[in-house]
């Protein structure tokens, strides 16, 4: 938040002149037919993408020279907001004169860039970026139809954020290399989640396969495991008692005592004894307000045991002294 975020409501005033102009006067809208294709000596390709129930659809028409694969003419029809119409119009224009393979490389980021008035000024506000994604997807669709291949074969590596075209690999690398701990940090480093925000967590504008919150939790857990080889689970039972105590104390200090301290409680390790089936019984004594609290017998013990099993070893069983 801050001075510029408190008023809100801005949308259309953040459109570039090019977006507004192409919304008002799209240059390439319309239908191409088999007759048009015959006249131009090319092959007609018609591709559909989107659904009206989701808010936008686009139909792309190409006439492609079968000798050279060059797109001789491109037009579109669109049901959608101004951004969707302007982006599709620009996309159709960008296809013309390119080979199908070249066109297939056009992304929504290229389209957005072409719609800018100033090099460093985005053509549409962040929440409108996803409206241009359809323009990108329909090219892929048209390419697959022209080539007679399944669209899945043209799919890129797992894309987490469609608006900024950030892959799963990029997000994972950013978390690892920069030791990121929050979704906001991921957005700062990668731009993933900066636009329509659908990819941050479930419940956004559209359903996604990957969500940043889940990726972050998974990669963080991996990082933690790698960082604490002492706590590698299978080895725990083979450690000396002194090392077992140290590992448990470390986990208590880092993950458990701070949480209990917030409620004025504490916990002490009393003993470690072998249990049945290779388990390790960890004897614990509650301190402060946890002592004598009914919740500490059930809820808190579950929390402590779960944390110790996750952080130290799944062989651990908690026992309250």
């Amino acid at each position: 938040m801050g001075k510029s975020d408190l008023i809100g409501g801005e949308l259309w005033e953040q459109y570039s002149n090019k977006v507004a102009d192409r919304m008002n006067n799209p240059r390439h809208f319309g239908v191409l037919t088999e007759d048009d294709a015959k006249q131009l000596g090319g092959r007609l390709v018609i591709a559909d993408e989107g659904a009206e129930s989701c808010g936008d659809t686009v139909r792309l028409f190409w006439i492609v020279d079968p000798e050279t694969d060059i797109i001789k003419k491109a037009t579109f029809k669109s049901f959608g907001c101004g951004t969707a119409i302007a982006a599709t119009d620009m996309m159709a224009e960008m296809c013309i004169g390119k080979t199908v393979d070249e066109a297939a490389k056009i992304t929504n980021l290229d389209v957005e860039h072409a719609l800018r008035d100033e090099e460093d000024q985005a053509a549409v506000p962040p929440q409108k970026m996803h409206c241009s994604v359809m323009a990108y997807e329909v090219i892929k669709r048209a390419t697959s139809i022209y080539r007679g291949v399944d669209i899945a074969t043209l799919a890129e590596a797992d894309i987490v954020c469609e608006c900024a075209r950030v892959t799963l690999q990029t997000v994972e690398d950013a978390i690892r290399i920069n030791d990121l701990k929050t979704v906001e940090e991921i957005t700062d480093y990668t731009k993933a989640g900066a636009f329509c925000k659908s990819c941050i967590q479930p419940g956004g504008h559209e359903k996604r396969e990957h969500y940043l919150v889940d990726i972050l939790a998974r990669v963080r857990a991996e990082i933690e495991r790698e960082r604490n080889p002492d706590q590698v689970q299978s080895d725990f039972t083979k450690l000396s008692v002194v090392k077992q105590i140290k590992a448990i104390e470390a986990a208590l200090d880092e993950h458990i005592r701070p949480a209990l301290a917030r409620d004025g409680g504490g916990i002490e390790l009393e003993d470690i004894t072998p249990g049945e089936d290779g388990t390790v019984l960890v004897h614990l004594a509650y301190q402060g307000s946890c002592k004598g609290c009914a919740g500490s017998l059930a809820g808190t013990l579950t929390f402590v045991e779960r944390t110790l099993r996750q952080e130290v070893s799944d062989k651990i069983r908690g026992v309250v002294v």
Partner: peptide
């Protein structure tokens, strides 16, 4: 129409009166 909003909530009233999904936006 919820195109610009962060949550995909097409008009609940159009859904409620049983208009087809194509009309939601």
């Amino acid at each position: 129409s919820a195109c610009a909003s962060e949550s995909l909530e097409a008009s609940p009233i159009l859904t409620a009166i049983g208009a087809d999904k194509e009309l939601a936006h």
